[in-house]
Design a protein around this nucleic acid. Structure first.
Length: 442
RNA sequence: GGAGAGGUGGCCGAGCGGUUGAUGGCUCCGGUCUUGAAAACCGGCAUACCCGAAAGGGUAUCGGGGGUUCGAAUCCCUCCCUCUCCGCCA
């Protein structure tokens, strides 16, 4: 969320930011000025009436104390009460309207984010690794997986419908191996603390990371969660939604807290399944396990001082890249354009892995700097040391380190052999019981 | 799920209808003292919003919401959370 005072003072900039993101400023910002004015007017009138009530009430107290009659004042206050209730209602309604408006405004993009109209304008800033040359026609992962008997999409559909997967045998173990390998690397080598958070969160948490109110349709919710209420700006702490990413529970760990500066930066890594409704993605990526309602992911989350977030963003992105490098998977780093950068993010790098079976690069990680945008929504602050010592919002960052399902399929496609087996990258072998390949069981 | 106890400022902890944003202690910040530090002493220290050029003023906030009252941290209702005991359970 942007700061109200900031939006008021920089309306032009906010509007430009919306245009850069290819969003509609009229729709999102339409009555900001008017709503803001009406809200302030209503608040001022309400507070003036309350002040009068408080003064009169004080006088009643004084009269009662000295044993004098206070009936006249009491009656006057009674009249005031109705007036206050009306003013309060109107002030609240303008206040809610403005807050909802504010909460739907995306983060301000960094200057270095390339201008663009779509993902086609994303900028490749780096390429790593050599694409393997095959002496046979490389297959897509769904063919390799089904043939090896380690991926069963048909039975998954029977169990749960489209966009689910069942991993079998070495396939299941490979998923688990990848999770362990990634967590080990991030905790041992990159200095992250491992977290195992709940896989369900309340709507307050989803507001904190920016998933609500705008993206309710992307989420799976439990029977106690009310999407309608969330769209009105009501966020509960006792309802349940399935997490779309570990970013939500992990970022919200410090919601409504003040951190000691000496603790920063804080780096967490978490493995969780992720649940996404994928509304609006109908017909997209229907083959294989590219786009699932449930997938596993190892996430990286950082909390930093404002002045450190850019450096930490680079570092976090490197931490994710090192997983790909350790696995020997060719990838490229892409700086997302203004149109493709997510709602809460000020700047995002995507890592795209090479998939020879489909002859394309595919997103496998997304690493973002959110500035104070999430911290403001979730009220996550730190106390700077020194004479000023006033709490300030931290900066939050996160990135996939990596999406496990997509890593799984990248290994199948990149390491497939002519005989249908899949060679395992050296570094994974200890996690796979010492075997060096996945082959069809005889 | 049932019974009981409790949720107060960065932390601990008083207050249990009347100028209480809230006693006190700790932490933190500034100062005195000291060669320096510690100790001691003095002073300062919540947040958001509204009005105001500013100085300053106002409103709200004692887990959340609602109610009673001229007036609520204090009384009532309700929800949430924590702790203890019982039950159930992977």
């Amino acid at each position: 969320m942007l700061d109200l005072g900031f939006v008021r003072a920089n309306l032009g900039l906010v509007e430009k930011n919306l245009r850069d993101r290819k969003l509609n400023p009229t729709e999102l910002l339409g009555h900001f000025r008017i709503t803001d004015e009406r809200r302030r007017e209503a608040i001022t009138r309400m507070e003036n009436s309350k002040e009068r009530r408080n003064r009169l009430s004080e006088q009643v107290g004084a009269l009662k104390k000295s044993g004098e009659n206070s009936d006249a004042l009491t009656l006057e206050i009674r009249d005031l009460k109705g007036e206050i209730a009306d003013l309060e209602q109107s002030a609240n309604s303008y206040d809610n309207e403005l807050r909802l408006l504010l909460s739907r405004l995306p983060n301000i993009l960094r200057d270095e984010v390339p201008a663009g109209a779509s993902e086609a304008d994303n900028k490749v800033v780096k390429e790593w690794g050599e694409r393997r040359r095959f002496d046979f026609e490389p297959k897509p992962h769904w063919e390799i997986g089904e043939a090896l008997g380690i991926l069963d999409l048909e039975r998954a559909a029977k169990l749960s419908g489209a966009r689910f997967a069942v991993y079998m045998g070495a396939g299941a173990r490979l998923e688990r191996a990848l999770i362990s390998f990634m967590l080990d690397m991030h905790t041992h080598k990159h200095g992250y603390t491992e977290v195992l958070p709940p896989f369900m969160v309340n709507s307050k948490s989803l507001f904190g990371t920016g998933n609500l109110p705008k993206f309710a349709e992307d989420l799976f919710r439990c029977s106690d969660a009310d999407a309608e209420a969330a769209s009105r700006g009501e966020y509960k702490d006792n309802d349940h939604w399935l997490i779309p990413t570990a970013e939500v529970p992990v970022t919200n760990l410090f919601r409504d807290e003040i951190l000691e500066e000496a603790r920063l930066p804080i780096s967490f890594t978490a493995y969780t399944p992720c649940f996404r409704a994928e509304a609006g993605a109908a017909g997209k990526d229907t083959r294989g396990i590219i786009r699932q309602h449930q997938f596993q992911k190892v996430e990286l989350v950082k909390f930093t001082r404002p002045e450190d977030s850019d450096v930490q963003h680079e570092r976090l992105t490197r931490d994710a890249e090192e997983i790909l490098e350790a696995l020997g998977l060719p990838y490229r780093r892409v700086l997302l354009s203004t149109a493709d950068t997510g709602f809460s993010s000020a700047k995002t790098y995507d890592l795209e892995v090479w998939l020879p079976g489909q002859n394309l690069y595919r997103e496998i990680s997304s690493c973002s700097n959110f500035d104070a945008f999430q911290a403001r929504r979730a009220n996550i602050r730190y106390r700077p040391s020194g004479p000023k010592a006033k709490p300030e919002f931290v900066h939050t960052l996160n990135g996939s380190g990596l999406a496990v399902g997509r890593t799984w399929l990248a290994i199948l496609e990149n390491y497939q052999q002519a005989d249908g087996s899949v060679q395992l990258p050296e570094i994974l072998r200890p996690y796979m019981g010492g075997t060096d390949k996945i082959a069809r069981e005889p």
